[in-house]
Write a protein that binds this DNA or RNA. Structure first.
Lengths: 341, 341
DNA sequence: GCTTGGCACTCGAACGAAGAGAGTGCTAAC
DNA sequence: GTTAGCACTCTCTTCGTTCGAGTGCCAAGC
């Protein structure tokens, strides 16, 4: 559709616009030594590119700015994915590996790292829990009145819940824990039912009264488990982006991401495998029509574990950001899949 | 020092300025029915108040704005602390009590709630952990290669650490956990030493090789425990404050609170008991000279557990905010002290 | 002697005109 | 097909003007 020169000019315009954020004039492009054509010729080509919808003028006497279509072509032609340089790769890996911590914390760390490295806003979903199978469980005495219930899912995510429960000791709790694991292991966490819990009574007849007291507490607690759905980081980055430095706009963006239904809509739309980019109007959520949204999923072995969404202005360093996101995603997947352990 | 009328005028000026954010003119004050004096008289009084340093003019033909000294007098004369209305009290308590969760999560919830209710930025420190005594401990198998170490401190704070540790089963882990608890219970967590851990060997001779493998992992993990020091929330609120809506300023504030040494300085300065307010230049940290900082500490029984800092522009609804902060602090203390459990 | 109406004065905010500058489209020549 | 040249357009900045809110001070009044 576009000839080589047109494509080259379009790329130069977009590169320049990404760097400087100001409409690009024909003279700027004509200065490029690999092109060696005059500004007048560039102007003619620009008029064509505009007619084809790849660029437009904010006003009559301004330079050109890429349209969504222009960005799309630009992004699609970034086939030669820049590999992250070794230094950055080591940095990311070391930061994510430092301190062996909980799944949630690793995701948060990765999102924070991404926010810092990309200078954009990040939303990440935590590894799922409720829909997974239970793989281990433990009751731990915290104080005279409190017991901690630890649940481990088959995707190695851990949750803890504090119960109000007194008049027991750790030895009894261990017995109860063991019995519960035997009875509940393999059940989907959100579907754990009272019947299975009640089998405790038969296992541990001698502690009947303790169990009678504990069962309803356990049931209620399990019912109230919630997936901590999203972690948000780097929204303050919107404050430095000239396109959003109008604090009204920045705040609107922030408020947008406090709305769970918006996040759900955004996350439901993410396909697995690879990295996806939605530019401007390509986003279904109209509030994001001025943004580009880059999404990917991190995995546990061969299943999706959670998703990462990068949100920024359409004017962003796609090439660099894609490579950082990709490497972080892969590292995260490796960590969760146990490659590094 | 000030006569009744002067004090009244000062309060009216500050009330009006807090509400409207614009310099207050003599005519505005003279309209107040309880005063019933002309604007000319107000002007004379204002000139006196300015001479005394309680108010000042941003420029010659503008109204008056409270100085730090003026705010100080205003805040100190707010003796009749407004009690929070029952509705808000119930709201705060229910929100903080809903779902019995971990200490960290309760603090985060409280900070988030405060950010929403006050419209200001909140920094909270989590309950301390490293300097506390160990009260319970448990190893839980997560997968073939991972074991979770759960630590409970005597102030009922729970931490979990993932260890890479394979070739064992939950029964052995239970035995090891029990032995560790016996040997380490009461030790200060950051001081747990290898010697005490090594006693495992004598307790559980039959698992000698497992123990030899586990001890160094445990030691390293315990060394690397870090107190998750601070939780920050509501900084986006700075975007709505006209005084900071200049996004440069808002961003500066945000960056300020990413610096741990600043937060440490801020938190070290907090006294216990009660609610403290630093206005403008009263803050040692020069970057906060345009802000007011309200601080308080939540407690576990009769000892400080963590601190809460509210940061906003000097122009804030001190009366309302103090009462919200106070009630939240008290509720938090009650929850941690087990009053509600 | 405090209070008040009146008045000249001051200063910032808003508005508009003028000028500069960047960039364009078009035309005619190469 | 490319390019130099030129008229044209539109934004941005600057500068002066006006408008209005608010002041300080003075002289009269209670």
């Amino acid at each position: 559709m576009l000839n080589t020169r047109q494509l080259q000019i379009l790329q130069l315009i977009i590169d320049d616009f990404i760097n400087n954020g100001m409409p690009v004039g024909s003279r700027t492009i004509s200065k490029n030594p690999t092109l060696a054509i005059s500004s007048a010729t560039i102007r003619n080509e620009m008029a064509d590119l505009e007619e084809l919808g790849y660029i437009y003028q904010p006003h009559t006497s301004a330079g050109r700015v890429p349209s969504d279509l222009g960005y799309r072509l630009y992004v699609d032609s970034l086939a030669a994915d820049k590999l992250l340089d070794a230094e950055q790769r080591v940095l990311i890996r070391n930061l994510l590996l430092s301190g062996k911590i909980k799944a949630e914390e690793i995701v948060e760390k990765a999102a924070h790292l991404l926010a810092e490295m990309t200078g954009l806003a990040i939303v990440a979903s935590y590894p799922g829990f409720k829909k997974r199978a239970l793989s281990n469980l433990k009751l731990i005495k915290i104080s005279d009145a409190k017991v901690l219930l630890i649940l481990v899912s088959d995707n190695e995510v851990v949750k803890s819940i504090t119960l109000s429960f007194s008049g027991t000791n750790q030895d009894i709790l261990d017995l109860i824990s063991n019995s519960l694991v035997r009875n509940l292991e393999g059940s989907t966490i959100e579907d754990i039912d009272i019947k299975k819990i009640s089998r405790l009574k038969y296992d541990l007849k001698q502690y009947g009264n303790v169990i009678d007291y504990l069962v309803p507490i356990l049931r209620d607690s399990l019912k109230n488990i919630e997936d901590n759905e999203f972690y948000i980081d780097g929204f303050e980055n919107f404050l430095t982006v000239p396109e959003f430095s109008n604090s009204e706009k920045a705040r609107k963006m922030y408020r947008l991401f406090e709305r769970k239904e918006i996040l759900n809509e955004l996350f439901d739309d993410i396909q697995s495998e690879g990295i996806f980019i939605k530019i401007g109007d390509e986003n279904k959520i109209t509030e994001l029509n001025e943004c580009s949204v880059i999404t990917t999923a991190y995995r546990y072995r061969s299943k999706d574990l959670g998703k990462i969404v990068v949100i920024g202005p359409k004017r962003m360093d796609y090439r660099g950001i894609i490579s950082v996101v990709e490497y972080t995603r892969n590292t995260l997947s490796d960590i969760f899949s146990g490659i590094y352990l």
